[in-house]
Design a binder for these strands. Structure first.
Lengths: 340, 340
DNA sequence: AATTTTTAGTTAAACGATTAACGAAATGAA
DNA sequence: TTCATTTCGTTAATCGTTTAACTAAAAATT
């Protein structure tokens, strides 16, 4: 049978209360007694039961982690890295993370994850864009939740977000510093806050350096944000004979598609067109040339979310707190100084 | 405050024991009382506390899921799919799955996942090849564990495995039925049970159809099982002027590398060489031509593991049970009938 | 009618922790 | 010396379930 606090108490010749107090570093216990207890704990290899502890403390020690199915199964380990960060940081406070997915099309028929309805978690982390319906259903439960890399359009929540505006600025400024003035921007799903913010960063950088914003250089009408969209966007630019010496794509997938189009049309990268992406996905390195991009620290996003969760659970947070995690420029071979 | 069994009991005018018995479908309770209780449960939206339940039943309701880091972060969502299957099936028995990773190089310095040392799980599922040290450390704990897609070289364990031999046979027979007789096999990391079994399947199929095994058609000396190994293996075959009209690669990655080499050397697929892979990874479809392969039902592997775990936990399993999940041939464009 | 059996519930202990409230001994203050 | 305070522990209630053992009433048997 399992070693319990009673066994420890007996072995150390004290009451179970004393053992518990030692475990919680209560200074009401003398150094000697504490030593005896610690010795007994060690010798018996005692591990407190999380169940018993949770029952009296009214907390489960679990954190729920919700992802849509497609995000979890994406080839690019974006959300898996975020999860890993969360799980890693959870070890610091002895939390467990329960990962579950919801259908990408979450409708009325779908029920919430069991850990929510059963109240088997102390808090919930929601990663990536999720259907509004989920958010609303979640609101019915008296459980703190935190978003990662997404922010619901209505309502006020705690969230850990990528500093997309900064990223957009850094990417654009990088191009500007290389001497470029005709910098195109391509984006899709422009309603998505993250994409929109990158776009804003682009515009801010232009303004900051006194470069006029030219709408013909900008494509925000793509539906999706995949490779095909990138290809399509750039091709449409080229078809209209729009000239640009640099390109900032709202993410790497689109950037890769864009490069494909540029190559097809015989444009040399980076000599004729410099390209910057956003995200730093795995395949960037295998591009020809390797893609310069804005790296998103996925692991850190997960870590920050778990930290924020702890603060929230400890009531350290006044209102809904937002954490912006910084991004950084990763120089590879797809950008170069403007050539005459 | 949380709704407890007491609230339900009060509302229904019965004792808490009665509520509990109703919850467990005990037929000692009359139909009417049961109805009253059920009504109260429903009206109060009562959810039993897993903590309290677990405490008295001496079970946590959790299953640990261990993966090496590199497996979890692989671009190909192989193990994530397996996990998803497990998580999905866990819902049937109200289990939660705690996913954690261990360093790929698990050494003495590394400690076991916290859910093991803390005994916060009822059983453990280990997916993919893991260091032997982990297995040995796990053995010290009195917890059932089950392997998925791996079987430790020493010892006897319960496991859910891919029917690799069958897969190797099916792949090879497919080629034989297309008229091929000179069928090459390329594999790497041949010590790995899965690879070895596919190789055995290859040999069995040849024998079954009375085709002589020719060692010069076989490469098992590659270290790794990646694209480069596939490329290297086939090139070395071609360099030695070995003739073959079909090729079975031990996995899709190698098959893709192999095709790259074949294309480079000007050999047409499938006209001059038919190629079959194994695994059914995402990028198969994007190959030129799309790769015919043996599909591994990842989701099912996870499901079967969870089912097996339940059997084990219920002591339904006499000895260590092995479950072989069947694979199936996926016809795409990389194989065709032998041309004269 | 008396006894036994069945039915339909209840009582109370147990699971393994935490912690407020209490208390005895030692120490300090008046 | 007496009273107050501090130190170091203990007692006992509590968290929300489950379930063995019990009981009262009803039904069946003799």
């Amino acid at each position: 049978m399992r070693v319990t606090i009673k066994d420890v108490a007996r072995k150390a010749g004290v009451s179970t209360a004393t053992v518990s107090l030692v475990l919680h570093d209560n200074r009401r216990i003398s150094v000697e007694t504490r030593k005896r207890v610690l010795k007994a704990i060690h010798e018996l290899e005692y591990q407190p039961s999380q169940l018993a502890r949770g029952l009296v403390m009214k907390q489960t020690g679990n954190i729920g982690f919700i992802l849509t199915e497609d995000h979890f199964l994406r080839t690019e380990p974006f959300y898996t890295r975020i999860f890993l960060g969360t799980e890693f940081e959870a070890r610091e406070s002895s939390h467990f993370v329960l990962l579950t997915t919801i259908p990408t099309q979450f409708t009325e028929e779908n029920s919430l994850p069991r850990f929510v309805t059963q109240q088997s978690v102390d808090g919930i982390i929601v990663a990536g864009k999720v259907p509004q319906l989920l958010v609303e259903k979640l609101n019915h439960y008296n459980m703190p939740f935190i978003f990662i890399d997404y922010y619901p359009p209505k309502g006020d929540y705690s969230a850990v977000l990528i500093d997309n505006i900064l990223g957009g600025m850094v990417a654009t400024e990088h191009l500007i510093k290389l001497g470029h003035k005709e910098i195109a921007f391509i984006g899709g799903d422009i309603e998505h806050p993250s994409i929109n913010e990158r776009y804003i960063g682009y515009k801010m950088a232009l303004e900051k350096h006194g470069i006029r914003y030219r709408s013909e250089l900008v494509i925000t009408s793509e539906e999706a944000t995949g490779k095909e969209s990138g290809l399509h966007a750039v091709c449409s630019l080229l078809d209209r004979d729009i000239k640009f010496t640099a390109l900032f794509a709202c993410n790497d997938a689109m950037a890769i598609g864009a490069m494909e189009c540029l190559r097809k049309r015989g444009l040399k990268i980076p000599d004729q067109v410099s390209v910057v992406g956003f995200d730093d996905i795995e395949s960037d390195v295998f591009q020809d040339p390797p893609l310069t991009t804005i790296a998103v620290p996925k692991f850190d996003l997960g870590i920050e979310a778990m930290r924020l969760m702890r603060e929230v659970l400890a009531n350290k947070v006044r209102k809904n707190k937002k954490v912006l995690v910084p991004v950084e420029l990763v120089l590879r071979k797809s950008t170069s100084p403007l050539k005459k």
